[in-house]
């Protein structure tokens, strides 16, 4: 290995290390708002918000979460799963028109916000089974 390739490897490593975000950058961190909202949100054909919140609580319990906070007026539930790792998730329910509900979930895995669509897809699949309703994608 030449001296040049050594310097190259060293530079790349340092660049990768500094590539990780600084402390303050996490305060307002987040992906594209439009894209994130679309992967984190589904609509359901129901207008019973309390029942939906109850089903959400039941689903989180089925998935091994414990509810940290719940507000039935605002329609929010925050829950944590501990299973060798920690997942913390907030779910909000708000009306969309007269006959639909919008359910949005956002979760963090240990220290990292989950921005991958698959975990949310899995969550809404589990929720669909609990409410006997289909989760529709929202544009």
């Amino acid at each position: 290995m030449t001296k040049n390739s050594f310097i190259f490897a060293f530079t790349v490593t340092i660049a990768l290390l500094t590539g990780c975000a600084s402390q303050n950058s996490h305060v307002l961190a987040g992906g594209s708002q439009v894209e994130l909202r679309s992967i984190q949100t589904r609509s359901f054909d129901s207008n019973d918000r309390t029942k939906m919140l109850r089903s959400i609580v039941a689903t989180t319990q089925d998935l091994g979460f414990i509810v940290d906070k719940a507000d039935s007026d605002l329609g929010t539930v925050t829950a944590t799963k501990l299973s060798g790792y920690q997942i913390r998730m907030t779910i909000t329910v708000r009306p969309k028109g007269d006959s639909q509900l919008l359910v949005r979930a956002n979760a963090t895995y240990n220290l990292q916000a989950i921005e991958d669509p698959q975990p949310y897809q899995d969550f809404f699949n589990s929720l669909s089974k609990a409410v006997f309703l289909t989760a529709h994608n929202v544009d």
Partner: peptide, 16 residues
């Protein structure tokens, strides 16, 4: 090791 994106266990949000 310092990579910024950890992977989430596949079954975390699936009913076991």
């Amino acid at each position: 090791l310092v990579g910024c994106t950890p992977t989430i266990p596949k079954d975390a949000f699936k009913l076991s």
